[in-house]
Amino acid sequence: MSGINYSISSLPWGEIQQVFLDMDGTLLDLHFDNYFWLEYVPQQYAKKRNLPLDKAKAEFMEMCRQVEGTLDWYCLDYWTDTLGLDIPRLKKEIAHLIAEHPDVIPFLQALRSSGRKAILVTNAHHNSLHLKLRHTRIGDHLDAVYSAHSLKLPKEDPAFWKVLQQHHPYDPAHTLLIDDSLPVLNAAQQYGMVHLLGVAKPDTKQARKPAADYPLVESFQSLLQSLSNFEHQARVFHH
């Protein structure tokens, strides 16, 4: 358990100098990835191997289980080799499904206007990362982007957060991490990060996540409101 008892509306913005933001399921709707990996890839694999779809899905899910939580799980080169499919090309075929969550851009703008840094920290493979930056506007509103593939560790490993420190010095006590993955939040907390938020609906087409060990972001509108209220009160106080 995280022991964090604040709500989104009472986030301690005064203690937060920068925000680490996950991409898939946090800034971007996870519907693209869920549809791609759970439906589109198994369909293509079934065609290639001449298998019934349910058998193709079962085989693919077993392959996924074997590498879950590792860098290979996120690596498009690994899946291209393993499945014999051109995964980057398949992603481009359904790139029209890539979308930001509502109010992400206004939140990022407000965050940077407040003097805080917005840092993308993702497990996404470079190929996937570049595709998504091309198809959305998030890249225009970030101060830096870090991929786990460059750091050679997945975010689920507490050592990742230490290695990130060497590339991007940060104070864990003054950094907010927003991520839809519970194992990632747990790893960051193990490293010493204090301000941690999950995401209530990573995939807009699926049900809300049940209450978790960390406060959940219901919408970026609520985060934006929380930051705006804090900034307004700070201005009133200083005047």
Rank of each mutant, 00 (worst) to 15 (best):
S2A: 14
G3V: 12
N5F: 09
I8G: 09
S10W: 07
P12S: 12
P12R: 11
Q17K: 14
V19N: 00
F20N: 05
M23C: 13
M23S: 11
T26I: 10
L28Q: 14
D29L: 11
L30S: 11
H31W: 07
H31F: 12
Y35D: 02
F36T: 02
Q43W: 05
Q43T: 05
Q44G: 00
Q44Y: 03
A46R: 11
K47V: 02
R49L: 12
R49N: 10
N50L: 04
L51R: 08
P52F: 01
P52H: 08
L53C: 03
K57Q: 08
K57Y: 04
M61L: 10
M61K: 10
E62M: 01
E62I: 00
M63W: 09
C64S: 05
R65G: 14
L71F: 05
L71M: 07
D72Y: 09
W73Y: 15
W73L: 07
Y74Q: 08
C75I: 02
L76W: 10
L76Y: 14
W79I: 03
W79N: 08
T80N: 07
L85H: 08
L85E: 03
I87R: 05
P88Y: 04
E93T: 05
L97C: 04
I98M: 06
I98W: 08
I98A: 09
A99M: 02
A99D: 09
H101I: 06
P102W: 04
D103R: 13
D103I: 01
A110P: 12
G115W: 12
R116T: 00
A118W: 03
L120A: 03
H126W: 06
N127P: 00
L131A: 07
K132A: 11
K132G: 12
I138Y: 13
I138H: 11
L142V: 13
V145F: 11
V145P: 09
S147L: 07
S147C: 14
H149D: 05
H149G: 02
K152V: 01
L153I: 00
P154I: 01
P158F: 01
W161M: 01
Q165K: 13
H167K: 12
H167W: 15
D171T: 05
T175H: 13
L176V: 06
L176F: 07
L176N: 10
L177V: 03
D179L: 00
L182N: 00
P183V: 01
L185C: 03
N186G: 01
A188I: 07
A188H: 02
Q189D: 05
M193G: 04
V194L: 15
H195Y: 15
L196R: 14
A200G: 00
K201R: 15
K209R: 15
P210Q: 01
A211H: 08
A211D: 13
A211G: 07
A212I: 00
Y214W: 10
L216K: 02
E218A: 06
E218S: 10
F220P: 03
S222P: 01
Q225N: 13
S226R: 07
S228V: 00
H232A: 13
H232I: 09
H232F: 12
A234I: 06
A234D: 09
